[in-house]
Write a protein that binds this DNA or RNA. Structure first.
Lengths: 111, 111
DNA sequence: GTTATATTCAACTGTATGGTTGAACATGAT
DNA sequence: ATCATGTTCAACCATACAGTTGAATATAAC
């Protein structure tokens, strides 16, 4: 896993339309036109969003006849998930360590 | 938790400089000038990044004398973490359900 | 073959982003 | 009071982004 993978994944997830598309894809594969229907956006705009998601590895597109079927790829979330999990724990434990050091916690009064 | 919180958090995390700043803050609070030193960026650029992080709730800035001390706020990661955790599980289970339905798994051959 | 459908691509627009610089301001040090 | 330091702010620039439209392409249906 490399830096720019995270850049792409987090960037892809930062747009509500793209997150909605992902949610929709969780219900099963779908074509682009089918995906674009519920959005107040042009077909091309949704296709671009799919491009961003595909580039981030979150979605795969497979040509099937004249249409293109999109599927979700949960594995790509792992990079982001791992980053968050590690940092959340790391940061929290560092902060707790600092608290203990400084002795701001009331529990430390009788030590 | 609202939609635009996630937008801001994911967007804040999508930049490698900002993630590096967060990592640096995990080691303890720091002033902006101290944070900006290791980066090949102007002071103002780093200050802007801090602004983005603060706006996303990931960092707090407190004025102390003439300098401004930045601290990390791990709690803000929870929104993103929860979103990822839920969707990763949800997507994966949905995909497994579809697999079972279609019977593509070799385990289903003798049923 | 013609037509309709699904998609891509290119061109364009407006706005956001990430960066710069230099001026302004507040506070600490001398 | 003066000077140095830490920070913000405003102006500016280049590029990226999200959106549009219309033309081009590929495939299915008739």
């Amino acid at each position: 896993m490399v830096e720019h993978d995270l850049n792409r994944i987090f960037h892809a997830l930062s747009d509500p339309t793209r997150r909605a598309i992902l949610d929709r894809l969780a219900a099963g594969e779908a074509t682009i036109s089918h995906l674009s229907r519920p959005f107040p956006l042009s077909f091309a705009a949704v296709s671009k969003h799919l491009g961003v998601l595909e580039h981030a590895g979150l979605v795969t597109r497979e040509k099937r006849g004249r249409e293109r079927v999109c599927r979700i790829n949960p594995a790509a979330l792992e990079d982001a998930h791992n980053w968050l999990e590690f940092h959340e724990h790391f940061w929290t434990s560092r902060l707790e360590a600092l608290d203990t050091l400084v002795g701001t916690s009331p529990d430390n009064l009788d030590e």
